[in-house]
Design a protein around this nucleic acid. Structure first.
Lengths: 142, 142
DNA sequence: ATCAGGATGATACCGGGTATCAGAAGAGGG
DNA sequence: CCCTCTTCTGATACCCGGTATCATCCTGAT
């Protein structure tokens, strides 16, 4: 769980103001835990206007502490992260649990692909879907 | 470009009916070329109801001849493909041109990751963004 | 030619997200 | 402490992609 301080500092350090609504939204997201939708954040911070929720979520993405997760079915969720660097997601389709990870091996493969394809590669998006160890355990016991 | 016959056969072979609206939509998508949005299809097939457009697009996805492409900015586009097998996309952020590709190397890396993570991996989604050779040429000449 | 079930279109709706704009609230200077 | 400048906010209306409903239509198997 990313600490409140980290999140607030990231906003302040980026030259943006650390306002009351923004503080509330940070608390709301932390309450929501591992992963959540935009709508859940709206619900969880009743005092804050809808537009501000989306604006703040965009801001947090720009600052690198919130990232979009494209689910199995194409729906999009969000997730706080203290890892501003590039990473991918390992998503449990059962419970929604999400892990961040990075893999030098995969980055190498992609670079190689760029060389072969003639594309000048700028970025990529990789989401991996599966069933986490905990859910697997449960399912196995049925 | 995927042939009309291929597309129509895929529908028929799956036990679904080959109706006039579906035929029109197939033509519309073929007219739209390499990549298109749902709304473009709606525009391109004026006789066909909105709901039917989305239903047919879902059907074509199930049958494996249409796939979603998640763009750079999170927007989603579509693309006809004759490759029903698993593949990834190489997307030009300049012109939108999209190539399908598959990479055994990457699949291996992912399998390895599954072993390490404790996740039982079922699938993944990989989109690569860059600038295609043609666009690169143009940009370089400025 | 019949007919059951699949497919259609109109419509209303939903969720995520953006545009607008008047007003509020921070931050800094005097 | 107050003024001002700027940023931020909230209400609202809107846009877009997609789904639910449901009465009606059409396909295609017989």
């Amino acid at each position: 769980m990313v600490s409140r301080q980290t999140l607030e500092r990231r906003i302040a350090d980026s030259g943006r103001r650390l306002t009351e609504p923004r503080r509330q939204l940070i608390e709301a997201m932390r309450n929501l835990g591992d992963h959540f939708t935009a709508d859940q954040v709206v619900q969880e911070a009743p005092g804050v206007g809808r537009a501000t929720v989306f604006r703040t979520m965009r801001l947090l993405q720009e600052v690198g502490v919130l990232c979009q997760v494209v689910l199995d079915d194409g729906a999009v969720g969000y997730r706080l992260t203290d890892n501003a660097r590039h990473h991918h997601h390992l998503i449990c389709s059962q419970c929604g649990a999400t892990d961040d990870f990075a893999s030098a091996g995969i980055e190498d493969q992609l670079a190689e692909l760029g060389r072969q394809s003639g594309f000048d590669i700028h970025g990529h998006r990789l989401e991996i879907y599966g069933v986490c160890a905990a859910c697997n355990e449960e399912l196995g016991c049925h």
